[in-house]
Computed example of a mutant assay.
Amino acid sequence: MHDNTLIPRPSTLDLSEFVTRFGDIYEHSPWVAKLTWERGLQAAQDTSAGLAEAMGRTLREASPERQLEVIRAHPDLAGKAAIAGDLTDDSTREQAGAGLDQCTPEEMARFERLNAAYKEKFGFPFVMAVKGSDRHAILAAFEARLENSQQEERRTAIEQINRIARLRLDDRATNR
């Protein structure tokens, strides 16, 4: 992972500028950026790694209810939103990068079955940082994680969401 400096430096931004620039790092959850800014930003948060750690801590320390809101804000992998073109730009790029836009009809049916079984068991969508992965590895992870307890899986989903956030911040730092 890169440790690139973000420009403009997050510690120099006011709340409004910070939320405008980083409010979308967590899918449909600008409160993570707002609360992170309110906790105070130092020069250590001016890198993608430093800001990812601060924002990740905000989410990890949030109430289970708020964590579930963030998890539920994520789209199904290879789900109806992807097919309909209703994903955020970041999610579209991430899913396409993992080849989820190239699934065979059989793989799509398997994703739909797994998405349904997972939601039935946990009450939220399966979330995975798919960058650098492929649909076969994702399907295997899906099946393995269906064995987790509710608490284990909420923790795993939050870890994966924080990985997604780190990757998104790395992209912003390198693609100025």
Rank of each mutant, 00 (worst) to 15 (best):
V127P: 01
L15E: 13
A54K: 12
D171L: 06
G23E: 10
K119I: 12
D89I: 04
A165E: 00
R9L: 04
I161K: 02
E38L: 15
A137E: 14
V127A: 14
F18D: 01
G99H: 01
M1W: 06
I25C: 09
E53I: 11
S48D: 15
D90Y: 14
A78D: 00
A44H: 04
S149T: 15
A82E: 04
L169S: 02
Q95F: 08
L15Y: 01
L139G: 11
A144H: 10
I83A: 11
Q160R: 13
P30C: 08
A109I: 06
A98D: 07
A43P: 12
G85C: 06
D89H: 03
M108N: 04
Q67Y: 00
E69H: 06
A96Y: 03
A43H: 10
E69L: 12
Q95W: 04
T156M: 08
A78T: 01
K131I: 15
Q42M: 13
E69W: 02
A141C: 11
N175A: 09
S91N: 11
K131C: 09
I164S: 04
D3R: 09
G79P: 06
D90N: 10
I25N: 10
L15G: 01
E27D: 07
S29Q: 09
D76F: 05
R93P: 00
G123R: 07
L13E: 05
Q45I: 07
R72Y: 01
A173W: 02
T12N: 04
R166K: 15
P105K: 05
L15S: 03
A173Q: 03
H2S: 13
I138M: 14
R166C: 07
E120Y: 08
I71Y: 00
A81S: 07
A141V: 13
H2G: 03
E17S: 11
E107Q: 13
P75W: 01
R172F: 01
T5Q: 13
M55I: 02
S16F: 07
I71W: 00
L35C: 00
C103M: 12
A165D: 00
R39F: 01
R145M: 07
A98N: 03
Y118E: 07
F142P: 01
T88V: 05
L15I: 05
I158L: 11
R154G: 03
E152V: 12
R21W: 06
